[in-house]
Design a protein around this nucleic acid. Structure first.
Length: 449
RNA sequence: UCCUCGAUAGCUCAGCGGUAGAGCAUCCGGCUGUUAACCGGAGGGUCGUAGGUUCGAAUCCUACUCGGGGAGCCA
C-alpha cells in the first residue's frame, strides 16, 4: 500500500477518493466514544491535520482510543472524500499500527498555551500550530530572499563569522577564546557584528552581492526585538546610489511577502486569525502600495507640529526615538516609510557625506509594530573624505587599511543595507517577540537547548 | 542597565488578613459523527526563595531570584 505524506493527501484528496492509502504520523488529538473514534494526525509535512476514523472492529480499538498525544502511528485505510464536511476528507482506518507510545505527561496539551511557557519547552514547541507555522514561514522567507537576489544576478558571499577587526561600529562584540592564554589568531578575535565591510570588498569585484548569515551582538538588550544571535541579510551594490538601494529594499520586502502568501496560505491564514487580526489585509496593502519616503529634516518638522505629547524632545540633530518612529509610520504615513539623510553625527563613519556637509546618504526603513526593519546607506567612496570622517570619529585609519584600499584601487559609488531577518519574520507573521521566531533563541542570560 | 507589572495544581488564572478554588489537562466511567468533542466522578498544592509585622500571612512590609511589558542600544 502506498505511503503518503499528509501534504500529498491534502493535495490529491479528490483523486484519491475511495482508494487505499497509508500514512505515518504523530497523534495530535484523539476523540472516542463507545464504538468509534477520531484521530487527528500530523507528520510535519503540512499545516493541517488529517482526520482518521476508527471503530471497534479494530482489534486494538481500546489501545488506539487511549493513545497519549504525540504517539506515532501508521494508519492504513480508505480515503473518503467529504468536501461538504468541516474536514475536506478523512481516512477510514482498516488498521492502526502503534509505532511509538508517548506518555500522558506530554507537556503540550489540547489547549492554548502561553508563548512564555512554550519558550521553556523550545524543543517541543515546533509541534504546535503556531510554531509549526512560524518556522515553515521562516524557511520559505529565507528561500524567497535567496531567490530575489539570485534572480537579479547578486552573488551570495559567505562573509566571516570570526573577525579581528575591532571596531565595526555596530555594537558590543563577543570575544573569542580557546580557554588558554594564547591568542589563536595572533590578536583578539570576536564574533561578527556585521558582514558589511567584507561584503563591500566583494561588491567591488562582482558588482552586486549579498550576505545572509548569523550575526552576534553582546549587548545587554532586553526587549522583544533584540537577540544576541540573529540572522541578517546584507546586500551591497556597486555603481549604486541611495535611491537605487531603496528601490531594491522595497522590491525585496514585497517579494518576500508575496512569496509567503502564495506558498504558505494555511499558515498565513492562521496568523491572521489567531496571532494578529488583519494581518493579511495589512500585508496585501503593503504589497500594493509604494513605501513612503521622507527626509530626516522633514520628519523632524512633522514631529514638531504633531498634536501628540512625546516623552522625548524633538529637535534637528537628535536621533528619532521609538515613539517618533512609531508616530511616523503608524500615524502619518500608515505604511512602511524610508527616512533618509540623517545628521552625520548620529550615523556611522562609512556613510557618504551629502553636499550640505551636515547629513549623510543613509536611510532606515520603519515599519508599523516593529520599528527599524532595515538600516542602509550609500558608502563614502571618496578616500580622503572617508579618512577625514574616521579621524573625526576617533577611529584609526591604519586599522582599516584594507578597507581604504578598496577606495584607492578604482573607487566607485556603492551602497548597501542590513535587514534583520527575524524582524522581517515578525512583520510577516504578526509574532510580537523575536524569541518566538528563532528556533532556539539566545538572549542575555539565556542559551538553553 | 532603568521603569513597570507579575510569580497560587501539569497549563491558564481567581482568591488580596481568618481551615487553598475554578476551567483545562491527567485517571476512572458514560456516549454511534466528533472537530480545543461532550456528560459524570476522582486524584492533584510546604501559594517563587529568605526574613519581618501579626493571635493568625497566599494576602501586608523588605531583600533576592525568575518572567512579561515599556525604554535605551540596534537589525
Amino acid at each position: 500500500m502506498k505511503r503518503f505524506t499528509v501534504k500529498e493527501l491534502f493535495a490529491h484528496a479528490s483523486a484519491l477518493a475511495n482508494q487505499s492509502v497509508s500514512v505515518t504520523a504523530w497523534v495530535r488529538t484523539v476523540r472516542d466514544s463507545k464504538t468509534f473514534g477520531f484521530l487527528e494526525l500530523n507528520d510535519g509535512s503540512f499545516f493541517k491535520n488529517v482526520q482518521v476514523v476508527f471503530d471497534s472492529d479494530l482489534e486494538n480499538f481500546s489501545d488506539v482510543a487511549k493513545l497519549p498525544i504525540s504517539s506515532t502511528v501508521t494508519v492504513e485505510g480508505t480515503l473518503i472524500y467529504t468536501p461538504d464536511a468541516k474536514q475536506a476528507f478523512e481516512i477510514r482506518a482498516a488498521q492502526v499500527r502503534i509505532d511509538g507510545y508517548s506518555v500522558s505527561d506530554y507537556p503540550l496539551q489540547k489547549k492554548r498555551h502561553s508563548f512564555e511557557y512554550l519558550r521553556s519547552i523550545a524543543h517541543l514547541r515546533p509541534r504546535t500550530n503556531t510554531f509549526s507555522a512560524v518556522f515553515r514561514v521562516r524557511s520559505l522567507a529565507a528561500f524567497a530572499i535567496h531567490q530575489f537576489f539570485q534572480e537579479r544576478g547578486f552573488v551570495y558571499v559567505n562573509t566571516p563569522i570570526i573577525t579581528t577587526s575591532d571596531a565595526e561600529g555596530a555594537g558590543e562584540m563577543f570575544r573569542l577564546t580557546t580557554g588558554t592564554n594564547d591568542e589563536f589568531f595572533g590578536k583578539p578575535a570576536s564574533l561578527t557584528v556585521s558582514g558589511q565591510l567584507n561584503a563591500e570588498a566583494y561588491s567591488l569585484a562582482f558588482g552586486n552581492v549579498y550576505t545572509f548569515g548569523p550575526t552576534f551582538r553582546a549587548e545587554n538588550s532586553n526587549t522583544a526585538r533584540h537577540a544576541a544571535e540573529f540572522w541578517m541579510i546584507e546586500p551591497e551594490m556597486a555603481f549604486a546610489e541611495l535611491a537605487d538601494l531603496l528601490m531594491v529594499a522595497e522590491d525585496m520586502v514585497k517579494h518576500v511577502i508575496h512569496y509567503v502568501l502564495e506558498h504558505a496560505p494555511e499558515e498565513m491564514a492562521f496568523f491572521d486569525q489567531f496571532v494578529e487580526k488583519g494581518l493579511l489585509a495589512r500585508l496585501q496593502h503593503v504589497v500594493e502600495s509604494d513605501f513612503a519616503r521622507v527626509g530626516y529634516s522633514e520628519a523632524i518638522e512633522l514631529l514638531k507640529t504633531a498634536k501628540v505629547d512625546f516623552e522625548y524632545p524633538v529637535s534637528w540633530g537628535l536621533d528619532l526615538q521609538s515613539e517618533h518612529e512609531r508616530y511616523l509610520c503608524e500615524q502619518v504615513f500608515k505604511r512602511p516609510v524610508f527616512v533618509t539623510d540623517y545628521p552625520k553625527d548620529i550615523k556611522a563613519f562609512y556613510m557618504r557625506m551629502n553636499d550640505d556637509g551636515k547629513t549623510v546618504a543613509a536611510s532606515d526603513l520603519l515599519v508599523p509594530g516593529i520599528g527599524e526593519l532595515i538600516g542602509g546607506s550609500q558608502r563614502e567612496e571618496r578616500l580622503e573624505a572617508l579618512k577625514k570622517r574616521m579621524v573625526e570619529m576617533g577611529l584609526n585609519p591604519e586599522e582599516y587599511a584594507w578597507y581604504l584600499e578598496l577606495r584607492a584601487y578604482g573607487e566607485t559609488k556603492h551602497a548597501g543595507f542590513g535587514l534583520g531577518f527575524e524582524r522581517l519574520l515578525m512583520y510577516l507573521t504578526g509574532m510580537s517577540n523575536i524569541r518566538d521566531v528563532i528556533p532556539f533563541p539566545r538572549t542575555v542570560g539565556h542559551a538553553e537547548f
